[in-house]
């Protein structure tokens, strides 16, 4: 009997302790899980949101940015803003929308200089090497130049004019006698500053700056271009290869 009363006294205490401990652990675990799910969901950046120059690739950026807003303060053009809760980009991270205020590409890159954590990479010293995104003609049907008109605005405002955007002259098949000056973006020179998208005269821009991961292709590592290898080597890659004359279509009688 004595034994049993002792057990009766002990068990509830022990049970309460175990229950309370489990409850605490479960509560903390639920907090962590909820936070992780929310964080995982906020990892993708909306396609119209661009990171400041020098930003690490998005996954690394999210591990490095402490959401302090110092880059926003450093920006002289109020281009950058911090994301609000549930506004698209991960809450508190800096971004800009090209159509609203594009990046003016300051030569001293103050936003990168002020970043305390390295989320904006200080190895970026030449703003021309920034890759915030890449411009894409998203609407060939509405682009005025592609209709044969001379708008040229995206080309004219481009800070890397004639490198990032060139005008390629082609034949205007609609009229049969005019030219089309097609704006062509060269991703190897485009910084993604967004001035072209900002300046597009259409209500819905025909040229938009998209995140690199979405809009820029990448050459496979193992691909070699014969003509480039030949230039690098400075000689024929396969010596003694006979170059036969090209066969041209026979002249019609």
């Amino acid at each position: 009997m004595v034994m049993s009363t002792e057990t009766d006294r002990k068990t509830p205490t022990r049970r309460r302790f175990v229950q309370a401990t489990l409850r605490t652990a479960a509560g903390a675990g639920a907090c962590g899980l909820g936070l992780a799910l929310f964080a995982a969901q906020s990892r993708s950046l909306p396609a119209d949101a661009l990171r400041p120059p020098g930003a690490l690739p998005e996954p690394q950026f999210l591990s490095a940015c402490v959401r302090c807003g110092l880059c926003v303060r450093a920006c002289p053009y109020d281009t950058l803003t911090l994301a609000d809760l549930a506004a698209g980009p991960a809450a508190g991270t800096p971004f800009f929308r090209a159509r609203q205020i594009p990046c003016e590409m300051c030569e001293d890159i103050p936003c990168v200089k002020t970043c305390p954590t390295g989320a904006l990479d200080k190895s970026l010293t030449d703003i021309g090497a920034a890759r915030m995104g890449v411009a894409v003609i998203v609407s060939r049907d509405t682009c005025l130049n592609l209709q044969g008109l001379r708008c040229d605005v995206c080309y004219r405002v481009c800070p890397v004019i004639d490198q990032a955007i060139t005008l390629e002259q082609t034949h205007n098949r609609r009229t049969g006698k005019h030219a089309v000056f097609e704006p062509v973006v060269h991703p190897d020179a485009c910084t993604g500053c967004g001035k072209c998208e900002k300046s597009c005269v259409l209500t819905d821009a025909a040229i938009k700056v998209l995140p690199l991961g979405l809009a820029a292709g990448r050459q496979d590592e193992h691909y070699r271009r014969g003509w480039e290898e030949k230039r690098k080597a400075g000689r024929e890659l396969v010596p003694g290869l006979i170059d036969l004359p090209d066969r041209l279509p026979e002249a019609k009688p």
């Binding site: 936070l35 992780a36 929310f38 990892r43 402490v66 959401r67 809450a91």
Partner: peptide, 17 residues
């Protein structure tokens, strides 16, 4: 748990909330 969430998602997770 918060540090575990940061490690699992590779983000400064707590700063969102």
């Amino acid at each position: 748990a918060v540090l575990a969430a940061a490690a699992a998602t590779g983000t400064v997770a707590w700063e969102m909330i």
